[in-house]
């Protein structure tokens, strides 16, 4: 039994390292991102836990199946056994999965409760989905703007080479501070969209007439990209999201600049 467990472990490690070496050799991402928020970390950990568990069960079940397929061939003279029920074993394989599920339910429940707790947020950004672009509004800051996809028609048609962030670029990214609890308030103007940035661990439907909430504390400076994740019409595939996380100090400067820019515009129009 001990040996079998070690073998399972070894197989998992082998497969895991094989995949990661292939991935690093080709620059291919094949697994969920660990992301840059406490929530995305917890999601990733839960994902890896359940992946490990199903892999282990898979190795056992498939191992038994493959063993049987090779061992009990009629062509090799196998005679069929006559057993066709065994209450004891049937109870065991009803109860063990149940116990495994309870083990999984604990971290899943904890993470879910944390994910839904939008209290004590330090700022709120209203995100509105439109066919087919996003609108961001920094509540309390008097800043708002549209964020439009920036991939050109020529790139899509293949007339010019595609840029590195093809289909994941916008004209004006959402700028946010790191290490700040940001509350998002989601809504939509026309049909349902879904605002998804994998690295933030946030995916929420934006529903016309209703407000949805989520939150993120981004722990690392960087640019994070995502896409609309709910079919929303013809250009659903062309609704990228870009989030630029900068330090709180830089963010303050950015806010001032936005407001300054706004005042200048107003002064100009008044003049």
């Amino acid at each position: 039994m001990h040996k079998a467990l070690r073998l399972v472990q070894l197989c998992c490690i082998l497969i895991g390292s094989l995949l990661s070496s292939v991935a690093s050799a080709t620059g291919l991402q094949y697994n969920m991102t660990r992301g840059v928020t406490p929530v995305s970390h917890a999601q990733y950990d839960l994902h890896m836990t359940v992946l490990f568990i199903v892999t282990a069960i898979g190795v056992l079940v498939f191992g038994l199946l493959i063993f049987s397929i090779f061992r009990y061939r009629k062509s090799k003279g196998a005679k069929a056994a006559t057993f066709h029920e065994n209450v004891q074993i049937e109870v065991i394989w009803t109860v063990i999965p149940f116990v495994i599920l309870m083990v999984l339910a604990v971290p899943a429940t904890k993470t879910l409760i944390a994910m839904e707790d939008t209290r004590k947020s330090e700022m709120t950004i209203a995100v509105t989905g439109y066919q087919w672009y996003w609108h961001y509004e920094y509540l309390n800051e008097d800043i708002s703007f549209y964020s439009n996809p920036a991939t050109t028609a020529e790139e899509i048609a293949g007339l010019v080479p595609k840029s590195g962030y093809y289909q994941l670029e916008v004209d004006k990214p959402l700028v946010v501070p790191t290490n700040t609890k940001i509350r998002f308030a989601f809504s939509a103007n026309d049909v349902i969209h879904a605002w998804w940035v994998p690295a933030l661990g946030v995916k929420r439907d934006t529903i016309p007439g209703f407000i949805n909430e989520s939150w993120a504390v981004i722990e690392e400076v960087g640019t994070y990209r995502g896409q609309c994740a709910e079919l929303c019409g013809v250009r659903h595939g062309y609704m990228p999201i870009v989030v630029e996380a900068i330090t709180p100090e830089e963010f303050e400067a950015w806010v001032a600049e936005q407001k300054g820019g706004l005042e200048e515009v107003i002064e100009e129009s008044e003049a």
Binding site: S68, I69, Y72, R73, K74, S75, A78, T94, P97
Partner: peptide, 21 residues
Amino acid sequence: AVPTGVKIFNWAATIFRGALT
């Protein structure tokens, strides 16, 4: 997952020690 697991395990047990073609 529990009843689904039961089905899969039962199929595996059906195959186990059969005379397969």
